[in-house]
Computed example of a mutant assay.
Amino acid sequence: MRRVEHVMGFPVSLRIDDEDVPERAADAVFAWLREVDERFSPFVTGSEVSRHGRGELGRHELSEDLVEVLGLCEHYRLATDGAFDAWLPGRGFDPCAVVKGWSVERGAQLLRASGVRRFCLNAGGDVVVAGGPWRTGVRHPERADRLCATLELTDGAVATSARYERGDHIIDGRTGHPATGLLSMTVVAATLTEADSVATAAFAMGAEGVEWAASLAGCEVFAVVTGGQVLRTAGFPVAGEMPAAA
Rank of each mutant, 00 (worst) to 15 (best):
E48L: 12
R2K: 15
F30K: 04
D18V: 02
D20M: 09
S13R: 13
R24V: 08
P22E: 13
R34G: 05
V49D: 12
D18R: 03
M1A: 12
H6G: 09
S47I: 00
R51P: 04
M8I: 08
D17Q: 09
H52L: 15
E5D: 12
M1P: 14
E48C: 11
A31H: 06
S47V: 08
R51T: 08
V49M: 15
L14T: 03
V21R: 03
R3N: 08
M8L: 10
R15D: 09
D37A: 05
R39W: 06
R3G: 05
A25T: 13
S50W: 09
L14V: 07
G9Y: 03
R51I: 08
T45G: 02
S13V: 11
D37P: 00
P22I: 04
H6V: 15
A25K: 10
D27P: 02
L33C: 05
E23P: 00
S50P: 11
A25R: 08
V49W: 14
G9L: 06
S50G: 07
V12P: 08
T45M: 05
M8P: 00
T45K: 06
V36E: 01
A31K: 05
P22C: 13
D17V: 09
V49S: 10
R34P: 02
G46D: 12
M8Y: 00
E23C: 00
D37N: 03
S41L: 14
A31Q: 03
G46V: 07
R15Y: 01
H52V: 15
G46K: 01
V7N: 03
T45D: 11
A25W: 07
E35A: 11
A26R: 06
L14M: 01
R51H: 10
V4Q: 12
F30D: 02
E5R: 03
S41T: 14
R15P: 01
I16R: 01
R3L: 15
L33P: 07
R51W: 04
G46T: 13
M1F: 14
R15Q: 04
F40A: 11
A25Q: 09
V49P: 13
D17N: 07
R51V: 10
G9I: 03
V44N: 02
P42R: 07
D27N: 08
D37H: 04
P22Q: 09
F30P: 07
F30L: 09
V7A: 09
G9V: 06
F43K: 11
S47A: 03
S41H: 14
R24T: 10
D20E: 15
R51Y: 01
W32D: 08
V4Y: 02
W32A: 04
M8W: 05
D17A: 14
M8S: 00
R3H: 14
E19D: 14
L14N: 05
R24P: 02
L14I: 06
S13D: 14
L14D: 04
V29F: 13
V21M: 07
V12W: 01
E35S: 05
R39D: 04
W32K: 01
A25Y: 07
R2M: 14
L33H: 02
R3F: 04
H6I: 13
E19I: 08
H6E: 15
A25G: 13
V12T: 11
A26S: 14
R34W: 08
E38G: 14
